[in-house]
Structures are given as structure tokens and as C-alpha cells.
Amino acid sequence: MSFLEYAWSILPQLLEATQLTLLITAGAIALGFVAGVVLALSRVYGPPPVRGIAAGYIAFFRGTPLLVQITIVYFGLPQLVQAVGLPNPSRLLSAIVGFGLNSAAYQAEYFRGAVQSIQSGQMMAARALGLSRLEAIRHVILPQALRLVIPSWSNELIYTIKYSSLAYFLTLPELMFVGKKLALKTANTFQTYMVVAAIYLIIVMIVSWFLHRLEKRVRIPGLGAPAEHR
């Protein structure tokens, strides 16, 4: 069997597994976004104790390996949830939470950078008009920060896509896990992994392209950090 024929034959299974990969990625990045924005705003605008907690969270989740974190969540979440009296979370949910908490820390830092790069005059002008702090953040700071953070955020999304492969350790049937199973079944191990790698690469390229388009569309003349090259 030639390489292409082989590749074609295993594609259906791999693509099915890819769906799970994308699901994990989407869930994680969404959770990370919400938590990240909250963390970042707490760090910039919150009272000292809140700032400390946020900083501590970020330091922990950035300083320890993702693998260790998702394992902790995988074991810990069910225990935590049981203690509160809720039903057991699915493995998928544990994985998403694990990845999401990690992503939140990184997104928080990117977002904080974006917020802090906005000139202080913007906030002053908003307050001078009579906007409250919250309103100023909502109408003036946030719209600008969200645009400024796109390059870093794209980076984070790509990272999450690739590192979702660690869900392999949690025995979730995503791309890596299924890939390995197939690889060990046949003697075409190398080729199998090549196909798996290719799929990841293609996903990354497609996503990058989309994000580039997005950045172009929301671009406002005069707003923003100089464009980032990959």
C-alpha cells in the first residue's frame, strides 16, 4: 500500500477523533477567555487583595506544566464536585476545565498587556465626560483592548489546538490518542504519525488564516500594536 492509499484509509477515523480535539479546544479557549478577561481586569483595576489572588493564580498556572495541571483537574474535579453534591463531571468536561484554567492564565496576561498599553489619557477623557469607572472600561477600554489582543490571542488559540493532544494522557479519544492506537496496530507507525501531524498542521494553518482575516476586518486605522509576524 502506498503512503497516500494508507493515509486515505485511516482518514475517516482520524477525522472523527479530530472533532473531539476541536471540541476540547473550543471549550478550553472559551473558558479561558471569560476567566482570562476577568483575571486581567482584576489585576489592573481591582483592589489589592483581589489583585494578589489573580496574580497568584496566573503565576501558578503559568509556572507549572500543563500536563500536571490537567491531571490535577482530572482527579480533583470529581472529588470537588462530589463534595458539593453535584453529579460527576464527564471526562470531557474535566479535560476542558483543566485546559481552560491554564489558558485563562495566559490569556489574562495577554489581555493585561493590551489594557496597559492603552494610553491613560483614554480613561481620563472618559471619566471627564462623566462615565463611571465601569462604564469607561466597558465603552472605551475594552473595545480597544480586545482589538489589541488579537495577535497574542491567535497565538494562544494555536497553542491550545496543539496542546489539546495532551488529552491523550487522560485517555480521551481525541486525535493523538486515536492516532497512536492506529499507529501501533499496523507496522505503518511512522506514516500514521505523519498523517496525524499533517492534520494538526492543516488545522493550524486554516485557523491562522481565519484569524488573520479577522484582524484585518476589525482593524481601525491608528489603533494597535505593530503587526506580529508568526
Binding site: 489619557g121 483614554q122 477623557a125 471627564a128 465626560l129 462623566g130 472605551v140 480597544q144 489603533l223
Partner: peptide, 20 residues
């Protein structure tokens, strides 16, 4: 203070127009 500021107009040296 927000109500008060709404009654006072402030023009900055650096303009500070909302860039977005």
C-alpha cells in the same frame, strides 16, 4: 462625581480622543 463631570467640559492638551 460622574453627574458633576457631565456638567463640566474638559479639553486636554493631548486631545485624548477615543482611538477606536
Amino acid at each position: 462625581i460622574n453627574c458633576i463631570r457631565a456638567e463640566i467640559g474638559f479639553v486636554f492638551q493631548d486631545f485624548n480622543l477615543f482611538t477606536h
